[in-house]
């Protein structure tokens, strides 16, 4: 997910992405932002955050742990907003979505 400085919610999104760096995929030991799992953050409704993300594998046994991790970092950061976690499978996650840091950690 790319962040534009012209985005009206730049500050919130930047804070959210920094916090989401703390959520690690326990299999790969890489955070979900660098893995490219976070597709979108929507702060347009002042009462909620819609976080659209995917996972590397549908029905992965660790998906509950990852979604809990997202809630655990986002809820204290934005206590006045309700987190709406939207897990999607389209577009399907692929390697091009990873950051250079993530690729480096995987040995590329």
């Amino acid at each position: 997910m790319e962040l534009q400085i012209t985005d009206p919610h730049y500050r919130e999104k930047s804070q959210a992405l920094t916090a989401l760096h703390g959520v690690i995929d326990p299999e790969l030991y890489i955070n979900i932002v660098d893995l490219g799992l976070v597709y979108d953050l929507d702060f347009s409704n002042p009462e909620e955050i819609i976080l659209t993300m995917t996972l590397t594998t549908p029905h992965c046994p660790l998906e509950e742990a990852i979604s809990n991790g997202v809630e655990n970092v986002m809820t204290p950061l934005f206590p006045d907003r309700k987190l709406n976690l939207n897990i999607v499978w389209e577009p399907e996650w692929n390697m091009s979505m990873m950051s250079d840091e993530a690729r480096e950690q995987l040995g590329f």
Binding site: E64, A65, N68, E71, V73
Partner: peptide, 11 residues
Amino acid sequence: WNTRYKTLHGK
């Protein structure tokens, strides 16, 4: 790991 830590992940 999932049974022990899934609720604590990120905290």
